[in-house]
Design a protein around this nucleic acid. Structure first.
Lengths: 347, 347
DNA sequence: GGTCACTATTGGAGCGATCCAATTCAGAGT
DNA sequence: ACTCTGAATTGGATCGCTCCAATAGTGACC
């Protein structure tokens, strides 16, 4: 007899019973499914007695609402898709944090996709998000590919002020200003021979423009390398090698991002130059690597968590008023001084 | 009159018309909704004529299947949730690549969530995934928190061989073996005073064990620092400083991962030690930073893309046979020689 | 020409939530 | 006692698919 009992019991435990639904909860709490739904959505017009009963039933049944059902029935999914460029370039980390913090209070969640990861797969992350019927899109990558976003879907371009998607809002740090700040920092230290390492992409171009402005208004000749190339450590290294080869008098380098600056650091070391005594180097992004003990990289902080917060605000506003005119919001960057910049040796 | 027409027209264009459904496609193609569904799922029993008609209609209407509807109706979502620890620790990048490549042929997609990002939000990524009704879970983080996974849900622990979740499969590189390889590499170069920098976590502990084994079987005394700490650059730096302080005769350091090795590099430089002449350093993971020009870090490659592929295989197998016994699969790591290891100066 | 065995196609019944209109329930007002 | 009103609760329809059983179509074979 007890053997029987044990066996049955075992079977019950083994069978992966399907997840509970609102009907199960309703039955357990002795109310209707509609009431459960109201509790789920935090309606104020539910009596406390019923509410606690429902909540308890949910707890007891280990109930979790089906996202599929709720977004099929409701008009909205309450999720925002974020398209990233490449997980390896860490500038997005703080952006996500700011975004998350700005969205959560409004009951919105985010899901991220990396473009290069999906590159070899047939469908772009965009397709996935559209299939998912996201309520909004954050594009944190160069929208080079044919990103045909259906009209009416809220889109915010993050970290890129080129409004390629029609009707999209924009939030970014002021890259041109940042480029100028970086250059002026070097100028202020007394440098005159300052080279700039750049790469393809809208943000990089603006940073280069800021550099150019600062240089010409100081009466100096800008020298830009790597236009159109990748913004990787490898490229930073190669272009820095070229720069130091062609213009050995160079005393300072402004790299379009921290990763490239890392490459420049390698090039300097290889040439036997001591940083910052022989060569000053400034990066951009204040990515996690910049603050490491090993690099201690002076850089421009684009304040990406603030950018993320701005993106969140844009999104929430547009969700409330779909036909609002597109806005562009800038965050003012600032120089973070660490230890890769110093006055030039022989002034 | 014509004014009327124009106005209506304008309204039609402005209204963000709701996405097309299979009914729309069916009507446009002159078939039933069921036939469209069959085409959608790539059924072989659809005539070519109809298939192309349906495909054309889809194209023309810019149709995208509703994920919500299909996963509500079908038993399965065809998506796998991946729980990451922290976007900043890049070891997962190759893991994701291998995983993606192994899953795509089976029509499975992945969605990732970072645990630290969601830390301050009420619900863990696990809850989100369960709400989403993912078909499987990849846990690529220390499952310290109370991760109560519903029985029956396929789970694979990635990069961590401690099978904490009951019934979960495991795929990882052989960390203990890797720890031994790293140590033996240093031993082979002639080092005798080798310190190990470690941190909290299952993988780190195994690497430390491998180190310990190699040391004791060489008749040397192991020296392990940082047990229980974080595995960050900061900790790597601090522990390396301590090690070099306490045991200045140290000629080689094995760090539990590349990030910590980076910190050790900083500590060595700060002490005026030249790497590798004065101090050899070996990391673990072969993360993207290890191969940079700046670091050229000798490291142990855990072959994470292979681990990812193994995870994918485990998942697919279990999806096919839910009551298969849990398996553990190891990938054999290998040393990648770059330029931070050399024979000790005075042997 | 008719039956058989397939293969290709179709309609109907859900999946688990939301939304809306309808109903019940209390207490207030007359 | 009886209507009125607003709040709390409920049933039914619906979202866009998948699944299944039923139906239509098509040659093959006798």
């Amino acid at each position: 007899m007890s053997g029987h009992f044990l066996e049955d019991n075992a079977v019950v435990h083994t069978t992966p019973r399907r997840p509970a639904t609102i009907y199960d909860v309703a039955e357990a709490a002795g109310v209707s499914k509609s009431l459960v739904s109201l509790v789920l959505r935090g309606s104020p017009k539910v009596s406390d007695i019923r509410r606690t009963a429902v909540l308890e039933a949910m707890e007891q049944l280990d109930y979790r609402p089906s996202q599929a059902a709720s977004s099929l029935a409701g008009a909205t999914t309450r999720t925002i898709g974020v398209i990233l460029d490449d997980f390896r370039n860490l500038w997005f980390v703080e952006l996500l944090r700011g975004l998350q913090e700005g969205l959560t209070p409004h009951g919105l969640r985010i899901t991220v996709a990396d473009r290069t990861l999906n590159a070899h797969v047939q469908d772009s992350p965009l397709d996935g998000f559209l299939s998912m019927r996201v309520d909004g899109l954050v594009i944190a990558t160069e929208p080079t590919e044919s990103m045909r976003v259906p009209p009416g879907l809220p889109v915010v371009m993050a970290g890129n002020r080129q409004r390629v998607v029609p009707g999209a809002d924009v939030a970014a740090n002021d890259d041109r200003h940042g480029g100028r700040l970086a250059t002026e920092h070097l100028l202020g230290l007394g440098h005159r021979r300052i080279g700039h390492l750049t790469g393809a992409g809208g943000a990089a171009r603006l940073r280069a423009e800021g550099y150019e402005e600062a240089m010409t208004s100081a009466g100096l000749e800008p020298r830009i390398l790597g236009m159109g190339g990748a913004t990787t450590e490898e490229e930073g290294y190669l272009e820095a090698v070229r720069l130091l080869e062609e213009v050995p008098e160079t005393t300072a380098v402004f790299a379009a991002n921290d990763t490239m600056a890392m490459g420049a650091l390698a090039a300097a070391r290889e040439r036997g130059l001591v940083v910052p005594e022989d060569l000053s180097i400034i990066g951009y992004d204040d990515s996690p690597i910049a603050s490491t003990h090993l690099l201690q990289l002076t850089t421009v902080d684009g304040r990406n968590s603030d950018v993320g917060a701005a993106v969140a605000a844009q999104l929430v506003d547009r969700l409330n008023d779909p036909r609002r005119a597109p806005r562009t919001e800038f965050v003012t960057p600032r120089v973070i001084q660490r230890s890769t910049c110093a006055p030039p040796r022989n002034t």
